[in-house]
Amino acid sequence: MIVFALFVSTVFAVLTRDDPKEQIAFGARLFGGFIGAGVLIGWLLYPLPL
């Protein structure tokens, strides 16, 4: 999940921003969002049976 989030956030950040500083800031936010959402959804689904 972390590797996937890293790849996707890198491509999206470079695709949507032109300035390198903006790319890094946006990419970091996107990466954090992916990881945070993944952990949150995993935590919410934890009580559910398989």
Partner: peptide
């Protein structure tokens, strides 16, 4: 160039991964 190299490396690596 910067964007091109990032896409080349990231997308190819993602596919190989």
């Amino acid at each position: 160039r910067q964007k091109g190299i990032v896409f080349l490396v990231a997308l190819t690596l993602m596919f190989v991964f």
